[in-house]
């Protein structure tokens, strides 16, 4: 009598995705899909066959099993690099969990966790860093709490007042 409309029911075992790749991001072979536009889930999966080149922004947790080349920015959310994930990007997130390979700098406002067989080549800035036995890491770890360090660099805007800068162009 009150049978559910099966046409809008999401497939069991597959997570819906919110592809948020502005700035010319090109996704090839996106194997996830949007089942229900109004249904916002907390975790987004990017599958093994997905290749993203460009800037990846989001406001929900993200798991990457594919390849990303560019920038990943999840300010208040968790980024998980799955065992098959290959990242060649600057990463900004609340927390980053690495089970795959990352080549690039990682900045997290809370924690970076490199699990067994995870690999990071780059500089890490985070107040907490966990590196498991068997993980590969080459680079630097800066755990000092610098609030400004977790924000990604922003392009200067015309309407904002110019901020005094050091002669070499670095941020004050």
């Amino acid at each position: 009598m009150w049978k559910r409309d099966e046409s809008v029911r999401p497939t069991v075992g597959r997570e819906p995705v919110q592809p948020t790749a502005p700035g010319g991001a090109a996704a090839h072979g996106l194997e996830t899909d949007l089942r229900r536009p109004g249904d916002v889930r907390d975790v987004v999966n990017i599958g093994k066959s997905v290749v993203i080149k460009g800037e990846l922004n989001g406001s929900e947790d993200l798991t990457v099993e594919g390849y990303v080349d560019g920038t990943i920015e999840l300010k208040d959310h968790v980024l998980t690099i799955g065992p098959h994930g290959r990242i060649k990007a600057e990463i900004f997130a609340k927390a980053v969990v690495v089970l795959g390979k990352v080549n690039g700098n990682v900045t997290a406002s809370e924690k970076v966790d490199i699990r067994d067989n995870g690999s990071v080549e780059g500089n890490i800035v985070a107040p907490r860093v966990a590196i498991a036995e068997g993980a590969h890491f080459r680079g630097s770890v800066d755990m000092q709490r610098k609030p400004e360090a977790v924000k990604p660099p922003e392009a200067p805007k015309a309407e904002t007042k110019p901020v005094a800068q050091a002669p070499n162009g670095s941020k004050p």
Binding site: R128, A130, A135, H136, R138, G139, S140, D142, M143, Q144
Partner: peptide
């Protein structure tokens, strides 16, 4: 080689920026 406890000791407790070149 990189070791989690050493990173915590030098990075978190001593406030060092730790560069790892294994």
């Amino acid at each position: 080689p990189v070791l989690g406890p050493n990173i915590q000791y030098f990075g978190e407790q001593l406030g060092c920026k730790v560069i790892v070149e294994d």
